[in-house]
Simulated assay, not measured.
Amino acid sequence: MSTCLAFVDGAPASKLSLLDRGLHYGDGLFETIAVRTVPHRNIADYPLWGNHYQRLLQGCERLGIPCPSQGLLEDEIRSFFSHFSLPLPSIIKLILTRGSAGRGYSPRDNTSTRILIGYPWPNYPKCFWTEGITVTISDIYLSRNPYLAGIKHLNRLEQVMAASRMGAFDEALMCDMNGDVIEGTRTNLFAVINNELQTPLLNEVGIKGVMRSFILSLCKHEGIPVKENAIRQDELIRASEIFVCNGVLGIWPVKQVLSTPLRVGPTTLRLANLIKEKIVC
């Protein structure tokens, strides 16, 4: 994929209006969708697609952007794959902006622009799944805003800055101004603390990732207790297990936080194996 493979509003395109509000203000949402191997390349059959659409719908309701129907997006993704003959697996990035308008923050028209972009599957080292990754704790803080919490809006400067400063570490964990650990630059966080599986509460800050939601449902189905609550840095350092997750990579165990080593523990392995049974990662 040396050239940009893109659809805009359901048709092949290589240009976007310079007046698009996504470009000017980050006025929009996005979903990064892992398209793996399923019959007929039918996006509706993907286990996480429903989670992606529900988060997109919630984001549209929060921002007041018209949300395309689930059926329309499924048809366009199928057409996208057919038109470009994309290999499997591949990554589809779905971007929804408020469309084009003149100067000024206040929205004028009740419109939206749909963008699909295809990317090759990332070539992560296999040891990230088996041996784990190293993580640092970023000095870039996340802002608390309950109106934007949970949704995947286009404003990602905090993550850009944190990722650019993580050096030789494989991922950077980010905290809010209270010192609570929230998430990674591209992942959600789970930790076993005092023999209890925990994940940060994301009601006022952070992204409610589709894999995080899937793992919470999986834990409920499998009878694995899990708690959503605040996790402070000192608590995280004392954790017996830590793993990060997202919809593309599945689960990565954490083998080191700053200079503190960790083992890949039984809870991490159990959940990773359960996900492999249901979603090929």
Results as ranks from 00 to 15, higher is better:
S217Q: 15
G206S: 11
A13Q: 12
H83C: 11
T185D: 06
L258S: 05
Y119R: 12
Y124P: 01
R270N: 10
N145P: 00
R232W: 10
A162T: 07
S240D: 14
R78G: 12
K152C: 09
G50R: 04
F243L: 07
R165F: 03
T113C: 14
N110Q: 12
A13C: 11
G206E: 08
D170G: 05
T37V: 10
E61A: 15
C281Q: 09
S213I: 06
V254A: 10
L5M: 10
W121D: 06
I43C: 04
D180Q: 13
S143Q: 03
L216E: 03
R212G: 04
L142G: 00
A239E: 03
R212L: 07
Q70P: 02
R21K: 09
L218M: 11
C175Y: 00
S164P: 06
I117N: 00
I182V: 15
N145R: 00
I92P: 10
S17D: 14
K126I: 01
D20I: 08
V135C: 15
R114H: 07
L96G: 05
T134N: 04
D20L: 11
L56W: 01
T199N: 01
A162I: 06
I215T: 06
L63V: 09
S85Q: 14
I207K: 01
K278Y: 01
P122H: 09
K276S: 14
D27Y: 08
F190Y: 04
P225K: 03
